[in-house]
Design a protein around this nucleic acid. Structure first.
Length: 590
RNA sequence: GUAGCCAUAGCUCAGCUGGAUAGAGCAUCAGAUUGCGGAUCUGGAGGUCGGAGGUUCGAAUCCUCUUGGCUACACCA
């Protein structure tokens, strides 16, 4: 919507530039050397809404930018078909005050009509996009790193959907390999048959406990590793006893992890298991060998030469014929495309695996899969702690459940301290939603690519640029609109008059609301949820200032009250729509 | 060694296709409530945008070199 206004002014000014060029006898080709006219914002609102720098034309038109600005301003003042708005020449810049009332009028129609889907675009319409994220091991509970992964995966899925894509969220459970056997082995030896039910320990934590127990045992008993390897062999042979334990412990872990997912608002459309896909990977490699894409070493292991992409050689199948990580991922990708033919597949995986994905995508392309060109590694940086990295050996790994629990407890204390137990209703539910909003917002603020530092103290603070701050804006507006509902009838018949919204912050809010769809599209194009979080904060801050400085329900006239209530209603709608894309629960009261 | 990513205020982060005086939060100092939720708002102080060249009318942004940090380069996943 704002986009159209920008285009309108841009075209108008470009036309005038073309006319000037024509009069000077400068041909169109020469003019084009100056490039496209840039549309910027002004440094401050009192200088206008849009800024057009005219430096680039100075050279081709052989005059100063200032003169061009002056010339265009004069010409436009003579054109009476110009849409309302006004010009403010500012040195080499031509600034434009756009016509806010007409923008606000159009906004009112669109936002009220579209509601929860205001801001959705058709950028990715007809695209089938699969998003893989989370991908836990079944030998321990989730930690902070998974939470960032989950937040990004979940958010990007919502963003893609909002842009019209059909999205399939998939999880790949890493449930095979020697690390899984280690926790099983320790369980066999030390557990005395304890279960999540008997011990009261959440399934994933119980399994994790034995994974840790194994590590201790391995130090005492040098034969431990050998026993684990033996168990893996038994697993591959299909030993019923081993499989039984494997199934049982996998179930415990997955059920535990799913409980964590519920708390963080994460869900999947389908699950894949590595135990199901590695054989397909193996067969594919063998077929590729027949087709001459790969080659066999003397020791009978199978390799690919990656010289084409300027990398070394890579082994695809061990000499004993067993599969590797890469082999499995090849199988998984092919299986997925078979089950749910996608146009693109996005892997949300830590940046440390970019080499792996480079190789994976290349191998799939060499195998002749058309869709291999549309695989994308959405890589994200590590989550570190203020005093360094998380290290499991040093016990500095931040457990996901612990973190959520302490955030929830903090939120709860805050509600009690503010004496708002009655207003919030279900205090457990609200505390959990505040914690979830705080966590998701904290994790989605930095660009995915960058490493980030997770400061627990800061994350549980609810002041400043935080999730709860954003939720608070929604709650305040809700509370105001609830009051409005009780007096609404008295205002029956008063129409929304956008021209009454003339305060600076009202102009800013209208522009931001109108800009929202553009940001939704940008977030998808860049695979970057932080576009949304930044916008949310800007909008909230502007609204908060506005709310502080100007009375809405106690405005000077009935018409003004109606106009402001309409604006505030739209702010709430856009806040809600933005919350939904970044996993911040909307709260009427907190 | 080779490749990739990163470097912006004391700390944590923004900064759109290159554009006007590089912005927030935290911390710090000083203020604001006879109004719709103070989990709020306003102001001060705090910057050689790692460094050096280059391209350009104009560079935090693009190019080259360089320094520092992280990661990967396993017949682990």
């Amino acid at each position: 919507m704002y986009q159209q206004v920008k285009e309108y002014w841009k075209n108008l000014i470009e036309e005038q530039v073309a006319l000037i060029a024509q009069e000077k006898g400068i041909d169109a080709a020469t003019l084009r050397e100056a490039g496209e006219l840039a549309v910027n914002t002004t440094p401050s609102p009192d200088m206008g809404d849009l800024a057009f720098p005219l430096f680039p034309y100075a050279k081709v038109l052989r005059t100063s930018p200032q003169a061009i600005v002056k010339d265009i301003t004069e010409r436009l003042s003579r054109v009476d078909t110009v849409r309302p708005g006004s010009l403010l020449p500012s040195g080499p810049y031509l600034n434009v005050f756009i016509d806010i009332p007409s923008l606000a009028g159009a906004l009112r129609e669109t936002v009220y009509a579209e509601g929860d889907s205001y801001g959705h675009t058709e950028l990715l319409k007809g695209q089938r996009m699969m998003v893989e994220f989370s991908c836990p091991n079944t030998n321990k509970p989730l930690h902070l790193g998974h939470l960032r992964n989950d937040a990004i995966g979940e958010s990007i899925s919502h963003i893609l959907k909002a842009n019209g894509a059909e999205v399939e969220k998939v999880n790949l459970i890493n449930n095979r390999g020697i690390h899984i056997c280690k926790s099983m082995l320790a369980y066999q030896r030390f557990s005395e048959g304890e279960t999540p039910e008997s011990s009261g320990i959440k399934g994933d934590h119980l399994v994790g406990k034995y994974y840790v127990r194994y590590a201790a045992w391995e130090k005492e008993d040098p034969s431990a590793l050998e026993q684990a390897q033996q168990m893996l062999r038994k697993w591959e042979e299909g030993d019923p006893e081993v499989l039984k334990l494997w199934n049982l412990m996998n179930r415990w872990t997955i059920e535990g992890i799913e409980e964590t997912y519920r708390k963080t608002g994460v869900s999947f459309d389908s699950y894949y298991y590595e135990s199901d896909t590695y054989t397909l990977g193996k067969d594919t490699i063998l077929k590729g060998l027949e087709d001459g894409i790969f080659y066999r070493e003397e020791d009978s292991s199978i390799w690919i030469d990656l010289e084409e992409i300027k990398l070394d050689k890579k082994v695809l199948l061990r000499k004993d014929g067993t599969s590797l990580y890469l082999t499995q991922d090849i199988g998984t990708a092919i299986q997925r495309h078979g089950k749910w033919p996608f146009d693109s597949l996005i892997y949300v995986v830590a940046s440390e695996q970019s080499y792996h994905f480079k190789v994976l995508f290349h191998v799939l392309a060499k195998l002749g899969y058309e869709w291999a060109r549309n695989l994308y590694h959405l890589s994200y940086g590590m989550v570190n702690l203020p005093d360094g990295k998380m290290k499991s050996r040093e016990g500095t790994v931040v457990d996901a459940d612990d973190l959520i629990a302490s955030l929830t407890a903090m939120a709860r204390e805050e509600i009690i301290a503010k004496n708002r137990e009655k207003e919030v209703g279900d205090i457990d539910d609200v505390s959990e939603k505040i914690a979830r909003g705080a966590l998701n917002y904290y994790l989605l603020q930095p660009s995915p690519m960058k490493d980030m530092i997770f400061n627990p103290a800061e994350s549980i603070s609810f002041n400043g640029n935080t999730g709860p701050y954003l939720q608070y804006m929604g709650a305040r507006i809700s509370s105001m609109l609830a009051k409005w509902e009780t007096v609404k009838e008295e205002y029956e018949g008063i129409r929304f008059d956008p021209s009454l919204l003339s305060v600076q912050d009202e102009r800013e809010l209208i522009k931001m609301l109108a800009l929202w769809p553009t940001l939704v599209a940008q977030a998808a194009a860049e695979y970057n949820p932080s576009v949304i979080t930044s916008f949310l904060y800007d909008l909230s801050r502007t609204f908060s200032r506005y709310y502080h400085d100007h009375a809405v329900l106690k405005g000077e006239s009935r018409e003004l009250i109606v106009a402001r209530v309409t604006l505030v209603t739209m702010v709430l709608q856009v806040l809600k729509n933005a919350y939904a894309l970044v996993g911040i629960p909307f709260l009427k009261s907190m």
